[in-house]
Design a protein around this nucleic acid. Structure first.
Length: 548
RNA sequence: GCGCCUGUAGCUCAGUGGAUAGAGCAUCGGCCUCCGAAGCCGAGGGUCGGAGGUUCAAAUCCUCUCAGGCGCGCCA
């Protein structure tokens, strides 16, 4: 919708230029606003005020000249100049009705665009260590990463979702040890459990499973570490599956090491002169590329650091030819950003290809009272627990109700309440309600018309109806902007607004009436709302139920 | 001490440099003989943490400052 108006404006500016009213060659980018007040029109632009200093003329004079040209376009009802020099454009109702025709024609494809132009984007998210179950914070990252991937795809990007498995190094070793100790314990040995090991109940479960399968100690028995890691990974995969989060690639840290890529990367940096040795360790001079301090790649004891794997991983990512990389990290990792950017630049890449989204903490509440968390106490709340309690739909929706970098209060009781204050149901109810209306009409032998035109739709004369239609028409641009800004929460807010327009309309206006033409037009409008709600919820990975 | 994030209504939060800053919840008062009341209508509520600066125009950009969170390992 908006693109069309920008076209009109560009045309008008060109005409003004030809008529000698404007002399500036480089016209600033056109910004179209949706004014807050309807007296300011459907769209408003500040272009005259931006041109004023360049033209050395009064903004209002320029605005008047442009407005006159704009007003001549057939889709334009009128065009006014207001305030310091805003150009306010009022469009004809028929212009908006095109959105309804569009939605009816495209159905679930409505909202799709080509703005991504098939660019390859990798979204790496969750990437939790396979040493314990996913907790609530991972869940938020999973919801954001998954929704973002869906939105990017809708906007025409070629998306790869990837999970980086930290299956090498200290932590998985400790997991293996934890399993071993529990196995021996279960067999009756009294062993003091080391405090820095994983003491969650799930480790006992894994130990029990191990004893059941391999206690005979057959030749094929895997090591504790290997067994524990794969058991944890299976559990994580199952959690994610039930959370409706899928991945295209599961990338193993261990495989990087095995294939020699870590050593290769260090050598590469050495060849480029970014490596030095000091105090028995091998350092990467990241300070040459904006980092706070240099970083160790190989410790004095000969062991590689986690960062050594990470540089190999990000080098590998770049070599796979992505146009953009998105990393979704917990906010506690933001200290890592500098060194990863340093790496990309050291390798000669443009680090602006990398976008890191930091996920802030989730504060779990129950009726407003904080639920205690803390990994050390072994009483951290898992994604599984929350999912089971409030359901996947509510859980995902709540995670996507806030900007990722803002802390989130998640109230369990609110999320599962079937009361009106629960926003998940507010949106889903809108969809179910419309399906019910369409069902009611069809029982009376009235169906959503197969064939229709602008004349039929022009029966939608209520103010609420045009507001809804305008909002529907903004959906495509919303998806684009949400994709480009990489902000899934915009979709959530849009849907709450759309439902907030529809419910009052429904309460006030009868859809199924004695007037067949009016009924047909309103059924079409309703179905369009349902389509957009369903499409929007699909981007969030939340279901759009026909009945609730 | 240094770095990053966040300060907007009682609470939780929206708000690509634009016009009189919005929504939900909470509070109070109303609406089901009629397409789904998981809904609707109405009311009250603000020094956009603070101070300077840039601009025709600042919640938005810059500087300083205050408050909260997080990070500053040869841990991952």
């Amino acid at each position: 919708m908006k693109a069309g108006v920008i076209g009109i404006l560009e045309g008008a500016l060109e005409e003004a230029k030809k008529a000698g009213l404007i002399s500036t060659v480089e016209i600033p980018a056109i910004v179209l606003d949706k004014p807050k007040k309807e007296e300011f029109g459907d769209f408003s632009t500040n272009i005259a005020m931006l041109l004023a200093p360049l033209e050395k003329k009064k903004p209002r004079d320029i605005a008047n000249a442009v407005a006159e040209k704009v007003a001549a376009y057939p889709d334009v009802e009128k065009c006014e100049v207001a305030g310091p020099g805003f150009i306010n454009i009022f469009l004809k109702r028929t212009f908006w009705l095109k959105a309804l025709l569009d939605i009816a024609g495209k159905g679930e494809r409505f909202g799709q665009s080509e703005i991504g132009a098939g660019k390859k984007v990798q979204v790496e998210f969750v990437s939790a260590n396979p040493t314990g179950p996913l907790h609530i914070g991972h869940g938020r990252g999973a919801a954001v990463g998954d929704a973002l991937s869906r939105i990017l795809r809708k906007a025409g990007f070629n998306v790869t979702r990837e999970y980086y498995i930290n299956d090498a190094g200290r932590q998985v070793f400790t997991l293996g040890e934890s399993v071993r100790i529990r196995v021996e314990e279960l067999k009756g040995k009294a062993i003091e459990f080391p405090p820095d090991h994983y003491k969650g109940e799930y480790v006992r479960d894994i130990a029990r499973e191990y004893i059941e399968k391999y206690d005979d100690g057959g030749a094929g028995a895997p090591g504790y570490q290997e067994f524990g890691t794969s058991a944890m990974l299976e559990m994580i995969k199952k959690d994610l599956e039930d959370f409706r989060v899928g991945f295209d690639v599961w990338f193993s840290e261990k495989s990087l090491d095995d294939s020699g890529k870590v050593a290769e990367t260090i050598q590469d940096l050495k060849d480029k002169g970014h490596i030095y040795e000091a105090e028995g360790a091998v350092w990467f001079r990241t300070t040459d590329f904006g980092d706070d301090k240099d970083r160790v790649l190989v410790k004095a004891d000969g062991e590689r650091t986690y960062f050594a794997s990470d540089i190999a991983y990000h080098r590998d990512k770049m070599e796979r030819g992505f146009d953009a990389l998105v990393n979704i990290w917990g906010a506690d990792h933001h200290g890592y950003e500098g060194r990863i950017r340093a790496l990309l630049r050291a390798l000669g890449h443009d680090d602006s290809a990398l976008k890191i989204i930091f996920i802030q903490l989730v504060a779990l509440l129950r009726k407003g009272v904080p639920v205690p968390m803390g990994k050390r106490e072994g009483e951290f709340v898992t994604l599984r627990q929350v999912m089971d309690e409030v359901g996947t739909d509510a859980c995902r929706f709540f995670f996507l109700m806030r900007r990722p970098d803002a802390q989130l209060d998640f109230d369990l009781e609110l999320a599962k309440s079937q009361a009106p204050e629960n926003p998940v149901y507010y949106v889903q109810y809108c969809h179910a309600r419309i399906k019910s209306i369409i069902g009611f009409a069809s029982e009376k032998g009235i169906n959503v018309p197969e064939r229709f035109d602008e004349k039929l739709l022009s029966r939608l004369e209520e103010k609420e109806e045009s507001e809804i239609i305008k909002h529907l028409g903004a959906f495509e641009e919303l998806v684009e902007r949400s994709a480009l800004a990489m902000e899934p929460h915009r979709i959530t807010f849009y849907l709450m607004e759309l439902a907030g327009l529809f419910h009052p309309y429904y309460n006030k206006t009868r859809v199924v009436t004695d007037d067949p033409e009016l009924t047909a037009a309103r059924l079409l409008l309703c179905r369009a709302v349902a389509t957009v709600v369903a499409n929007g919820l699909a981007l969030l990975g939340v279901s759009a139920p026909d009945k609730m």
